[in-house]
Simulated scan of single mutants.
Amino acid sequence: MNIKSLFAATMLSLSVCALPATASAEEVFDAPVAARQAKETGLQTAIFAGGCFWGIEGIFSHTRGVTSAVAGYHGGNSGTATYRQVSSGMTEHAEAVRVTYDPSVVRYDQLLQILFSVGADPTLHNRQGPDRGPQYRAAIVPVTAEQRAVAQAYVAQMERSGVWDKPMAVKVEKHRRFYEAEANHQDYMLNNPNSGYIRRWDAPKVEALQEHFPQLYRARFRTG
């Protein structure tokens, strides 16, 4: 059992009162404003991976302009696209989130800035927060040529920015089929606000979104 699953299972037997009432995000970065802005019209879809999909889905569910955020798996095949199998780290999938958004409200490059400011550390290889394994890698999965060009430019810009003192580990991956995760993993933060894992690792990310991107923060969840 991976750390996230073990933590969740353990917390089922513990009182939530045993947990600290508040916790700070692991780290917030001043990710740069993109030099290359995305040029898109109409509703668009993008896929992002940044560790546990519960938190990434939670962040984008609170982002203005996002009309849907769905937790799932990207990078492997349908026969192994289950939580139990992906958690082994042997299936080539990453826990990922498929985001549908209105670029007249929030651009693709702004979603990238949000992801790497409050969601994921782009310098970590095959891990985020307490979770370890290739299924927790940070990855950008463009679904259009415009997204790919913007993503590649943004990774290069982050490398040059001096914000991080380590090389970029995040990859721009080839778009493969996205598999929706099981129903109990959808809207996990919304449905499990007192989960020990959510309170410690993911709720602080949403708090950081509100603090650092107030113009793009939405208090109510937009569920997928």
Results as ranks from 00 to 15, higher is better:
residue 152 Q to Y: 11
residue 165 D to I: 11
residue 169 A to K: 00
residue 113 Q to A: 05
residue 17 C to P: 08
residue 99 V to I: 14
residue 187 D to C: 12
residue 68 S to K: 06
residue 30 D to A: 02
residue 75 G to W: 14
residue 192 N to V: 10
residue 174 K to T: 08
residue 129 G to T: 12
residue 215 Q to I: 06
residue 59 I to D: 00
residue 73 Y to M: 12
residue 121 D to H: 12
residue 62 H to V: 09
residue 92 E to H: 14
residue 164 W to T: 12
residue 80 T to D: 06
residue 63 T to D: 02
residue 128 Q to K: 07
residue 178 F to I: 04
residue 126 N to L: 03
residue 139 A to D: 03
residue 3 I to F: 13
residue 112 L to Y: 01
residue 203 A to N: 07
residue 200 R to P: 06
residue 46 A to M: 15
residue 50 G to W: 15
residue 104 S to C: 14
residue 59 I to T: 01
residue 202 D to E: 14
residue 45 T to M: 07
residue 148 R to W: 05
residue 98 R to H: 02
residue 96 A to K: 12
residue 112 L to W: 00
residue 214 P to L: 02
residue 180 E to W: 00
residue 220 R to C: 02
residue 87 S to K: 10
residue 76 G to L: 04
residue 6 L to I: 00
residue 206 V to D: 10
residue 151 A to T: 10
residue 30 D to T: 08
residue 25 A to T: 05
residue 40 E to C: 10
residue 37 Q to D: 07
residue 158 M to S: 01
residue 144 T to M: 03
residue 88 S to F: 07
residue 156 A to Q: 10
residue 161 S to I: 09
residue 38 A to F: 01
residue 88 S to N: 12
residue 219 A to E: 13
residue 207 E to N: 10
residue 120 A to C: 12
residue 26 E to R: 00
residue 46 A to G: 05
residue 187 D to H: 07
residue 150 V to I: 15
residue 92 E to K: 12
residue 182 E to D: 02
residue 194 N to H: 07
residue 97 V to F: 13
residue 153 A to D: 09
residue 30 D to L: 00
residue 25 A to F: 00
residue 11 M to F: 03
residue 143 V to S: 06
residue 169 A to V: 04
residue 126 N to P: 06
residue 178 F to Q: 02
residue 198 I to F: 15
residue 223 T to E: 05
residue 116 F to S: 09
residue 180 E to P: 14
residue 107 R to K: 05
residue 8 A to N: 11
residue 100 T to A: 11
residue 9 A to T: 12
residue 101 Y to G: 00
residue 61 S to Y: 11
residue 46 A to C: 14
residue 146 E to I: 03
